[in-house]
């Protein structure tokens, strides 16, 4: 039986360029026999929503260094990173760290 979650995803720090300049996406995420997690979300975004330069978003099954992942305004490290299970209505924000000044 598949478990489905409706999520809000946002991009910041210039990452929106990789997603056709969309700052926000609504994503429906499913997994078989378990709760969908952040790993599933990253894979879905990389597979279905980036046309070019995927390496600027993913590295293996996780995000590339320098991208912060925030779930409901909390650092994902406080919620099990890749294994963090997602709830209906969760807001997941991906932000590229900046260096200019």
């Amino acid at each position: 039986m598949s478990v489905t979650r409706n999520l809000k995803v946002e991009f910041g720090g210039g990452l929106e360029i990789l997603f056709n300049d969309q700052r926000q996406l609504k994503i429906t995420l499913s997994a078989d026999g378990r709760n969908p997690n952040v790993r599933d979300l990253i894979k879905k975004l990389a597979d279905e929503h980036i046309q070019e330069r995927k390496e600027l978003f993913v590295e293996g099954e996780t995000v590339r260094p320098g991208i912060l992942v925030l779930i409901n305004d909390c650092d994902w490290e406080l919620r099990d990173e890749l294994d963090g299970e997602l709830e209906d209505g969760d807001l997941v924000v991906f932000i590229s760290t900046l260096h200019g000044g």
């Binding site: 210039g14 390496e55 600027l56 590339r64 260094p65 320098g66 991208i67 912060l68 590229s96 760290t97 900046l98 260096h99 200019g100 000044g101």
Partner: peptide
């Protein structure tokens, strides 16, 4: 602690190349 590994060079942007609005700094 926040960014243990540096981002790849091709992802790094600078004010000279990518611009900056003065009021943002």
């Amino acid at each position: 602690c926040i960014i243990p590994r540096p981002p790849p060079v091709q992802s790094i942007t600078s004010c000279a190349d990518d611009g900056i609005l003065g009021v943002v700094t």
